[in-house]
């Protein structure tokens, strides 16, 4: 093999490999989540087999301490995790990007006031804010968890949007667009958002992972989706007592959680390389 071939290969393969790994991991969860809407191996609330059975042809990853099928619960967990991740990131993005742009364009005192408020929000751990909001709402349900996580995530998005937008705002092409008579809304739409998007999208993926893990933590603490909905966090919590006799009950939801979080991050990394023409053309 020639030296040229050795150095050329990684540059060409790296982005697409990362992207494909992300697509496969996330796609798997999406497929399973969609499948769980129309078909499940067993009724999630029924005792489908003996207690704490190991993997078998009937129960691929065994049963829990009440004899319910674990695969069924993990499949529902995929769906819940995706809904929570997408919902929380959507709320966080909408709220955060709006606030961030507002701060970037605002007068000095409004910018300072917004920045101080966001700093206070960021200083609180995401999980703590989410727990507060869930505890404050009447019933613990999936939506209160999603809204709570969305609000907690929006502070970081707002801070990031603000600084990214400020950096783009001083560029000559913004001034050039101004001198040629572009209005601010138009400049935001065609210049600012596209230029901050590559960085924001990677951050959204990180936050998707964070949201999924935070929801699992909330469920683990009993503040997430109520019992008939099987969240990975609750499966973990229920498997905790029997982790030595039936370790798969804890390992399986943990693996599901990690694979989704890694998959989303790989997907974002790969997508950023595709979106950003300065990275793509090499």
């Amino acid at each position: 093999m020639t030296p040229a071939a050795i150095t050329a290969a990684p540059d060409h393969c790296r982005p697409s490999l990362i992207l494909w790994a992300g697509i496969v991991l996330v796609g798997l969860h999406v497929l399973v989540g969609l499948l769980s809407l129309v078909w499940l191996p067993y009724d999630p609330t029924a005792m489908a087999g003996g207690r704490l059975e190991g993997p078998s042809l009937l129960h691929w990853i065994g049963t829990d301490r009440l004899g319910r099928d674990l695969l069924t619960h993990l499949m529902i967990g995929s769906r819940i995790a995706l809904i929570v991740g997408l919902g929380a990131v959507a709320i966080g993005a909408a709220l955060g990007v709006t606030l961030g742009l507002l701060a970037a364009f605002a007068s000095k005192w409004l910018d300072d006031a917004l920045a101080a408020t966001l700093d206070i929000l960021i200083a609180f751990p995401t999980l703590l804010i989410a727990m507060l909001v869930v505890a404050a709402s009447d019933t613990a349900n999936l939506w209160s968890a999603i809204i709570a996580l969305g609000i907690a995530l929006s502070a970081i998005v707002a801070r990031l949007t603000r600084i990214l937008a400020k950096r783009v705002l001083v560029m000559d092409y913004i001034t050039a667009a101004r001198t040629s008579g572009s209005s601010w809304p138009k400049i935001v739409a065609i210049h600012i958002l596209p230029n901050i998007w590559p960085t924001l999208s990677v951050n959204f993926a990180l936050q998707f992972g964070l949201a999924v893990i935070a929801e699992a933590s909330l469920s683990y603490l009993g503040l997430g989706a109520p019992p008939p909905n099987a969240s990975w966090g609750r499966i973990l919590q229920e498997a905790q007592g029997t982790v030595y006799t039936a370790p798969l009950g804890a390992i399986a939801p943990g693996l599901a959680l990690v694979s989704l979080a890694i998959g989303v991050n790989l997907l974002a990394d790969g997508l950023r390389d595709t979106i950003d023409p300065t990275r793509r053309a090499r």
Binding site: Y173, T175, A176, T179, S180, S183, H191, T278
Partner: peptide
């Protein structure tokens, strides 16, 4: 002034790299 800009006046800037949107 928005209406005036781009009709009455236009500017060519000093640094051609930053004067163009890198992603467009």
């Amino acid at each position: 002034l928005d209406r005036l800009r781009g009709t009455a006046v236009a500017i060519v800037f000093q640094e051609p790299l930053t004067a163009l949107d890198p992603l467009m």
